[in-house]
């Protein structure tokens, strides 16, 4: 079943909508949740929480990319779940590494209240739109899908060192973009 048909089921308030979405994107959502939570059980629980939220969102929202939309719900749920972990648990694992890396994107000289989520999202979007597809793929796989560098290297048929260097460069460039966006506000 294609995405349009699944979305139409939601808009028609069909009982089969969630089933169809789960069948097509269940594994996708579990994978995103696992990248963040690093636990099969928690990833399963998190993914199960996607379908009621998708039911509430559609309608009125009609996603242009159903995979991204459902994946986004999953990501939020997974990060919320992660943030409830103990300090010790949060200091280890993939997300801890992600946060350390993304810290490099945040201009140290700018106060935090100048950097709201809306501004950051806009800056990241503007920056990514200027980059080649391969760069965008690497960045989003790392910082949206939360894949590890090893997995990204395999998926993009690149050496790990190349992926690390690419992401490092992009973090530096994103930092400057965020600085400019914050200054422009």
């Amino acid at each position: 079943m294609d995405d349009k048909q699944i979305i139409d089921l939601y808009f028609d308030r069909s009982q089969h909508a969630a089933e169809a979405a789960r069948e097509k994107y269940g594994a996708h959502c579990r994978a995103i949740a696992y990248n963040i939570l690093e636990s099969e059980e928690e990833a399963e629980t998190c993914a199960d929480g996607v379908w009621p939220l998708a039911w509430e969102a559609m309608p009125p929202h009609r996603p242009s990319r159903l995979s991204s939309f459902l994946g986004g719900i999953t990501r939020r749920l997974a990060l919320d779940r992660w943030s409830k972990r103990s300090l010790k648990q949060r200091s280890e694992g993939n997300v801890a590494m992600l946060l350390l890396e993304l810290e490099e994107c945040m201009p140290a000289d700018l106060p935090e209240d100048m950097l709201n989520e809306e501004c950051l999202a806009a800056a990241a979007t503007a920056y990514l739109r200027t980059k080649p597809l391969l760069h965008r793929m690497a960045f989003i796989r790392r910082y949206w899908y939360c894949n590890t560098v090893k997995v990204i290297a395999r998926q993009l048929s690149l050496p790990e060192r190349r992926v690390e260097a690419l992401l490092r460069l992009m973090r530096e460039e994103l930092r400057e973009t965020i600085r400019r966006e914050a200054a422009a506000q």
Binding site: L99, L100, E117, A121
Partner: peptide
């Protein structure tokens, strides 16, 4: 960076 990580969810 946690703020940025969450903000990237709105791409």
């Amino acid at each position: 960076s946690e703020k940025l990580l969450r903000a990237l969810g709105d791409l």
